[in-house]
Each structure stands twice: as structure tokens, then as C-alpha cells.
Design a protein around this nucleic acid. Structure first.
Lengths: 170, 170
DNA sequence: GACAAACTTGACGTGCACGTCAAATTCGAG
DNA sequence: CTCGAATTTGACGTGCACGTCAAGTTTGTC
């Protein structure tokens, strides 16, 4: 079996630069079970493939953006693992019934993940709405003030338009 | 001297139970400058009023829901402080120009807060969309599978996703 | 095969956000 | 005033998520 450059296996330093993580963090994630023990072809020296890197990007986002703990992320990614496992099973089996059952399980897991994310999203949305209400109150006050005391010096400011930082709706 | 039910100053234990925080955490927040040094009427013993409790609730939410660090929260709340200060100034001054300037500053601060929250929200929304896409792919696969092998048993899910019927992996 | 750069496994250190324990006040009821 | 419960100020401990340093191993290059 000739060992050509197939799946693009990269050492930890390269992966670290690519993902913006540190080698230490990557090893730590593996140690904590967030990453499947990386390939170790001959001796030591971990080698990572594209799916590993993909996963690391995911981990990073879940931590930095949402602020999940590694434990929470592991839970979320366990569904990932199961999904991969199911896909594997899915590919191997010729029995359509098995394929369907596997798919149903995968869907169930994906739905749970989505539910967790959606809940977070809703909570933050609530906060955003409150902040926006505050802002609106202040703007109303300003409008009222400007109304009773029209600015004599020619500079006029548009008050009616809130800043264009309105994002996302459910 | 009757105890007017107006001030309502509460000791730290009560406040802790009310907010779901611990006394230690509350003292820590004060120490870290997230909370204005609480009232200490005669000797020691902090006493908190409604606005303090409100603020503690806010801090708790920003930490638990969004996952901001105390440093980030302090930044957000500094705008709060300034807002209060401006409001104070606002009430005191009789000069409409000063009032308008104060309001404009307050609005600026509120907009910055809103922008920060909105950014977080958008990032999480992105993640949610991706999760939803994954789910949809799986559901499409299931539909396809059910289509070619109609299942005699159980429930059926109404799924419609116009994905290419190629069973290729991501 | 030699050698520097990268990687390995420990093991200990660090910053954050508190938890926990101790000893000394302070508060509220009697 | 007395006593117990609550609170105060240290000071040290803890769990998480790594950082950092050391000593040895592996890898790519000449």
C-alpha cells in the first residue's frame, strides 16, 4: 500500500495556527475527551485531519461566542460523535430499516442541539429587547427636549432613526 | 421615628437569597467595582437598596446568560453609572442645552451597549442557522429513505427539503 | 548520520470567580 | 445588658482552562 498524500494530515503546530488555538489547548481538549485521540502514525506526534480541524473550529466558537464550558461542549459534541457513528453504521448497513432508525436517532440529537442553542438565543434576545427599550426611552426624552427648545444654531440632528444595530429576530 | 416603607435597606443575606447570589459573590462584585460601595449606615454591615438589587440581577444575567466576564460587565455597567450621573445632572440643571447634551451622551452609551449585545446575538444566530441546516439535511435524508422504503409502522414526519438527492457526505 | 525545529509527556504556575474557614464585630430580640 | 445569629475583614483553598518550563523524543533537512 503506497502511502501517498491522502487525507492531508497536519501536525499540531499547523493546526494551532489554522484554528487560532494553542497546541496546549488542543492537547487539553483531547485529554478532556472533546477530541478523538488524534492519529499517531508511527511513534508519537499527533496528526490531525480536516474533520479534526473542523471540530476544533466548532469548539472554539462554542467557547468564545456562546461561552459554553468544555463540559457543555463535550455534551454537544457527543451528539456529533454519535452522529458520525450513525453515519458510519448508516453507510455500512444495507438494511433500510436500520438506516431509517439511525437517521431518526441522528435527527433527535440534532434537534436537542438546536433546542439548546435556541434557548440561549432567546434569552439574549430578551436582554436585547430590554436594552432597546431603554434606548427608545432616552430618544423619546431627547425628542421631547428638542421639541420645546428648538436648537437656534443651524446644526440639526436626525433623532428619529435608531442606530443601525438592530439584528436578528425570532 | 417610624420605619417608613420607602428606603427598604436590606442586609446582604436577604439580598443574596433574593438574587440567587452568595454573600461572597456580592462582596466580590463590590470589591471589583461592579457595585457602588453599599451603604454602611453606622458601623460596618452593608445595606442594599432596590437599585442595588436590580443591578445585581443584571450582573447575574449578563454572566449566566451571555457569559460575559466581570470585566466586560463592569464596562457595560459603567455606562449605567454614567447614565445615572447624567440623569442626576439632567434633573438638576435648568439649562435646556445641558439637558440635551446629557441626553445625547446617554443615548450614545445606550447604543454602544445595544451594539455589543446585538453582536453577540448575531453570532449565536449564525450558529443556530448552521445547526438548523444540519438538521434539515438529516431530515431530507430520512424523507428520501422513507420514500424508497415506505415504513409500515409508527409516526411519520412531514419533511420537505429540496436538497440534491446525492447521498454524498459533507 | 548530524542537527535544529517541532513535538512529546509530565508537572507546576496562573488568572478568574468565587468557596471556605477563622476571628473579630455588629445586629436584633429579650 | 446578654446572647445568638448575621456580617465583617482577611487569608487561604478550589475548579476551570489553559500557560509555562523542563527534559526527552521525533521530524525534516543537509
Amino acid at each position: 500500500m503506497a502511502e501517498e498524500s491522502q487525507g492531508e494530515l497536519k501536525p499540531i503546530g499547523v493546526v494551532a495556527r489554522e484554528t487560532g488555538l494553542t497546541p496546549r489547548a488542543i492537547r487539553y481538549y483531547e485529554e478532556m475527551g472533546l477530541l478523538r485521540p488524534a492519529v499517531r502514525v508511527k511513534g508519537a506526534d499527533r496528526l490531525f485531519d480536516a474533520s479534526d480541524i473542523q471540530r476544533l473550529h466548532e469548539i472554539k466558537r462554542l467557547r468564545e461566542v456562546i461561552g459554553f464550558s468544555l463540559a457543555e461542549i463535550r455534551e454537544l459534541l457527543e451528539t456529533d460523535d454519535l452522529r458520525a457513528q450513525l453515519r458510519d453504521q448508516f453507510a455500512r448497513t444495507s438494511d433500510p430499516m436500520d438506516r431509517i432508525r439511525a437517521l431518526r436517532q441522528a435527527i433527535d440529537l440534532a434537534e436537542r442541539r438546536l433546542a439548546i442553542i435556541s434557548r440561549k438565543l432567546a434569552q439574549i434576545e430578551t436582554i436585547r429587547v430590554e436594552e432597546q427599550a431603554r434606548l427608545a426611552r432616552l430618544q423619546a426624552l431627547l425628542a421631547h427636549e428638542l421639541d420645546r427648545q428648538p436648537d437656534p444654531s443651524g446644526s440639526s440632528a436626525a433623532v428619529s432613526a435608531p442606530s443601525s444595530t438592530t439584528t436578528g429576530r425570532s
